[in-house]
Design a protein around this nucleic acid. Structure first.
Lengths: 139, 139
DNA sequence: TGTTACGTTTACGTAAACGTAAACGTTGAC
DNA sequence: GTCAACGTTTACGTTTACGTAAACGTAACA
C-alpha cells in the first residue's frame, strides 16, 4: 500500500503562491483542518490540498471566505439524511446559478475591454494615416 | 436638441443596489467625477452612469478598486499621442489576458460545483432506492 | 551536538471598502 | 414659507484578510 503523499505548509504556500499566514488564517476560519505531526507541525494530505485549491480559486473571482466556507460545506454535509441532502442540493443550485451569472458578467466585461481596445486601434490608425498624408504632402 | 438624461446619487444607488456611501467613496478615489448642481448636489450623466456600471461589474468578480481605476483610465488616456495609445493597448492586452484566465477558472469552479451536485444526487438516489427496498421487503 | 531552516502560537498592526452618525444645507410639494 | 425628503461634508468605527514581530519549539544535517 503506497503511503499517501503529504505536504508541509511552506510547500503548499510556494506551490500556490500564497503566504503561510494566509493558509493558517484559512484554518482559523475552519476552512482547513490538516493533521499534526508529533511536534505540532501541520501536515496536509491530498484532500486538504484540493480544498486549498478550491479556496484560492474562489477568492480569485471575488468570493469572500464566508461564501467559500458555504461551498466547501456542501462537500462535507452529513450524507445520512436524505432531507439534508435535498437542502444541500437546492442551496448548491442557488450558488451555481450565481456562478453562472458571474461568468456571463465577465463575458460582458471582456466585451467592454475589446471595444475599448478597438477604439484605441482605430484612433491609432487615424493618427498613422495622418502622418502618411503629411509625408505625401511633403513630396 | 433633447436634454441629456441625468441621475441623482440615490437614483443610481437604488438602480444598482449599492449604497450612496459607496458611490461617494468611488468618487473620493477618483473613479467618478459627476457635475454639481447650484446647491452642490451631485448630478450624474449617462457617461458617469456607464462608469459606475463598469466599476460594479469589475468588483463583482474580484477586482480591487485600484485595478478598476487602471481599466477606467484606459478609456480616457490622452488620445493625442500615438505612443501613449500603443502603451495603453499593450497594457489593455495584459489585463484582457487576465480576464480571460479568470473566465477559464470560473468554468473550472462551475465544473467542481457540478461534480459535487452529481455526487449528492447519486447518494440521494441510493438512499431512495434503499427506502423502496424496505417497502418491497415489507410487502 | 550545534547550527540552520522551518515551524508554532500569540498578538498587535494595517489597507481596503465601506457603515454610521452628526450637523447642516437644498429641493420640491403643498 | 414650511415641512419632509434628500443631499452635503467631516470624521470616527468596523469588517475582512491578511502582514509582521516576538518568543519559542522542531527537524534535518554535518
Amino acid at each position: 500500500m503506497p503511503e499517501e503523499r503529504t505536504w508541509s505548509i511552506s510547500q503548499l504556500a510556494e506551490e500556490f503562491d500564497v503566504s503561510t499566514r494566509s493558509i493558517r488564517f484559512y484554518e482559523e476560519k475552519g476552512l482547513l483542518s490538516p493533521e499534526r505531526s508529533g511536534g505540532g507541525y501541520r501536515i496536509y494530505n491530498k484532500r486538504d490540498r484540493a480544498r486549498l485549491k478550491l479556496i484560492l480559486r474562489g477568492k480569485r473571482f471575488g468570493m469572500s471566505l464566508d461564501e467559500i466556507e458555504d461551498i466547501l460545506g456542501l462537500g462535507t454535509v452529513d450524507m445520512d439524511e436524505a432531507e439534508q441532502i435535498r437542502k444541500a442540493i437546492s442551496y448548491g443550485e442557488r450558488i451555481m446559478a450565481d456562478v453562472v451569472d458571474r461568468i456571463e458578467e465577465m463575458k460582458l466585461m471582456h466585451q467592454d475591454l475589446l471595444e475599448v481596445g478597438q477604439k484605441m486601434h482605430d484612433r491609432l490608425a487615424e493618427l498613422e494615416a495622418a502622418e502618411n498624408e503629411d509625408e505625401t504632402a511633403a513630396d
